[in-house]
């Protein structure tokens, strides 16, 4: 093709010259499509699986720790994985406080790879939306849940199975259109 381009006479094979533009248009459309897709959304293998077995102590100054038994009490709950060093956690935090105020869905917290004192100070400063907290200092429980970044949230059904996984901060839109409807469907109080 190169030789042809080199020796082609005027006006012939105009299509050859237009083809780069056409191919580029197709690639650009693909890239546009790509913008609305999120490659980070990877279907979690934990969906519909029972929560892993664990027993975590509470973060400093809190009374109730968190264990897998707490998730098998026939209640729909939201387990939120957070850390005091996590910036995005601050973003979703007011939403969790609002959730607690409304009392529609219990929220349990797992402080992921965080010093329990730091977690406690963080909760004291920003408000505590969690009815139970677990200090996962080593990150072991997080690994069992399949956490690969904070914040992440898991909606647990009455049967103690993971029904939904939220990667990244919860937005009001996620809450109203995904999490709460699903919680209602699972038969929670919401």
């Amino acid at each position: 093709m190169l030789g042809r381009i080199a020796t082609m006479s005027l006006g012939r094979f105009m299509l050859v010259y237009a083809s780069p533009a056409v191919i580029f248009a197709a690639v650009a459309m693909l890239l546009y499509q790509g913008l609305s897709l999120d490659p980070r959304v990877i279907p979690s293998v934990m969906i519909d699986k029972p929560v892993p077995t664990f027993d975590l102590p509470p973060v400093a100054n809190h009374t109730a720790g968190l264990s897998s038994a707490d998730l098998h009490k026939g209640q729909v709950v939201l387990v939120n994985v957070f850390a005091s060093w996590c910036v995005s956690c601050r973003v979703e935090h007011p939403l969790l406080l609002e959730l607690k105020r409304q009392g529609v869905l219990p929220v349990y917290g797992i402080a992921y790879k965080d010093n329990p004192k730091d977690s406690a100070a963080w909760l004291a400063q920003l408000g505590d939306p969690y009815s139970r907290t677990g200090a996962d200092v080593s990150g072991r429980v997080g690994i069992d849940f399949g956490v690969y970044g904070v914040p992440e949230s898991y909606l647990i059904g009455k049967d103690g199975r993971i029904a939904y996984k939220q990667i990244g901060p919860i937005t009001p839109d996620d809450l109203q259109n995904k999490i709460l409807p699903l919680a209602r469907k699972l038969g929670g109080q919401g």
Binding site: M8, G11, M14, Y17, A18, P20, A21, A25
Partner: peptide
Amino acid sequence: GGSLVLFAVRAP
């Protein structure tokens, strides 16, 4: 896109 269209028009 602009430069490839320019190419398609002018290169021949």
